[in-house]
């Protein structure tokens, strides 16, 4: 059990391999201090990101989701991030209808050289999610919840 239990929220990051993942790496190599809430999933391109990835994360209990890709005009695959921009913007509009605060999801563009900018993005987004607090979880299926309760004593 981590010392940060309770202080840390769960933020899922989907980062494109060519720019933002490199940017996060640059930030690491540069030893820029960053909040530790973010867990990164590396994807080939922001165009690879199915909006359902984000929804699955949010509905499964993530407190925030951050997507980051190459700047427009800089996509490794020429146009993946253009498609992503449209999809992600439309998805953001759906969140309030589902009762999810749209500030729990952001998408941004960070290049591989922008270590400093990556630090700023992570800082700002983590702060934003912390202001909102932990997301309300949807209940599990009744049978599963009952089973989990029965198994709870065995866990220790």
């Amino acid at each position: 059990m981590s010392v940060l239990e309770g202080k840390e929220l769960r933020i899922v990051g989907f980062l494109c391999n060519w720019c933002s993942y490199g940017g996060a790496d640059t930030a690491g190599v540069g030893r820029f201090s960053q909040p530790t809430d973010l867990r990164i999933v590396r994807v080939p391109c922001s165009g690879r990101i199915n909006p359902l990835f984000i929804m699955k994360a949010l509905l499964s209990g993530a407190d925030g989701v951050l997507v980051s890709g190459c700047h427009p005009r800089d996509c490794h695959y020429a146009e993946g991030n253009y498609y992503a921009r449209r999809r992600l913007e439309v998805l953001k509009g759906l969140l309030p209808t589902l009762g999810i605060d749209p500030r729990r999801f952001e998408y941004t563009w960070v290049s591989a050289s922008e270590g400093q900018r990556w630090q700023h993005v992570v800082d700002t987004f983590t702060q934003q999610v912390h202001t909102l607090g932990p997301a309300k979880r949807l209940p599990d299926a009744p049978e599963l919840a009952a089973l989990a309760a029965r198994l709870e004593p065995l866990r220790n």
């Binding site: 359902l52 929804m55 509905l59 439309v90 759906l94 949807l138 209940p139 599990d140 299926a141 049978e143």
Partner: peptide
């Protein structure tokens, strides 16, 4: 994408799949 559990999460997620696949 979906489990067979009888949970609101899975049911709502199905509606999200349906809706996002119909976006636009």
């Amino acid at each position: 994408w979906l489990t067979q559990a009888d949970s609101v999460k899975d049911k709502l997620f199905f509606q999200v799949i349906h809706a996002t696949h119909l976006a636009g």
